[in-house]
Design a protein around this nucleic acid. Structure first.
Length: 260
DNA sequence: ATGTCGATACTTTATCGA
């Protein structure tokens, strides 16, 4: 089972790229972030025509997450517990089953958090804390699950072109790394890192300042696996070439394969 | 080098978010 995640930066602006990528790489599950659309404006039919079931948690203009699956969804939940007044669409969880085994997948769009002296940074930290609490509950089930998405966290100096330039940024400052480490330390595995140790393998290059041309990238999109999912991990990769396409997103797809 | 996108609105340019 191939599980991919991609921050598409508007599904309507990116539909041609997304359709081409799905045809070329054929993931079983695709988690999408920053769809920037409410559900009724999501191009559901074009993706269903490729054989995918579609689940959407939309929002006007900003955020929004979705999931595509060749297998039917068994249950879908778009509520990250812990703050009933949070109206930002950043979480969508679904379970699929192959018949013998079930796997739960979440499409995650964690807050960016910049600027750090605004209320956006405490919101980021609180959202990550809520995610940790949810993961704690999921782990109690001792089942396979994968959190896939844009975590807006640079895990280490190997995951950024210039660590010093990013040291105080919301994606890399100490409190953020501490929060992300606490999430991993619950018992999750970074699927890409478990398979690929090479430094400077990025998933995001800013549109600005010639970042793509200069390979000024970040690895901020991740697939985090429960122990039961990690036992089935076979391979991982980044579809870097998608950043060079016409009308590219600033992020590229990243994926894992599970032996299930 | 503030060098780019995408969505939105009392639009045709400014604002926000990333």
């Amino acid at each position: 089972m191939k599980i991919a995640t991609w921050n598409v930066n508007s599904i309507r602006a990116r539909l041609d790229n997304v359709v081409a990528w799905l045809k070329e790489t054929s993931p079983d599950i695709a988690c999408l972030q920053e769809i920037k659309a409410i559900e009724e404006n999501f191009p559901r039919q074009a993706l269903e025509d490729l054989g995918y079931n579609v689940a959407v948690h939309g929002q006007k203009s900003y955020n929004g997450v979705a999931m595509l699956s060749k297998l039917p969804f068994e249950d879908v939940n778009s509520r990250l517990p812990g703050n009933d007044s949070d109206e930002q669409a950043r979480f969508l969880q679904a379970t699929v089953s192959t018949g013998k085994k079930a796997v739960t997948i979440a499409s995650i769009y964690a807050p960016n958090g910049n600027p750090v002296n605004s209320d956006k940074y405490p919101y980021k930290l609180d959202w990550m804390k809520r995610l940790r609490a949810h993961v704690k509950d999921l782990l109690k089930l001792e089942e396979s699950f994968v959190l896939a998405g844009d975590f807006n966290v640079i895990p280490s100096e190997d995951d950024v072109y210039d660590p010093e330039a990013w040291r105080e940024d919301a994606l890399f400052r100490q409190e953020t790394l501490q929060s992300y480490r606490a999430l991993l330390n619950l018992g999750l595995t970074d699927g890409f890192r478990a398979c690929e140790q090479a430094a400077h393998r990025y998933t995001f290059w800013d549109y600005q300042a010639g970042a793509w041309r200069k390979d000024h990238g970040l690895r901020i999109d991740h697939l985090l696996l429960s122990p039961q999912a990690a036992d089935m991990l076979e391979s991982a990769g980044i579809d870097k070439y998608m950043r060079g396409r016409e009308k590219a997103s600033d992020h590229v797809p990243i994926w894992i394969e599970l032996d299930i």
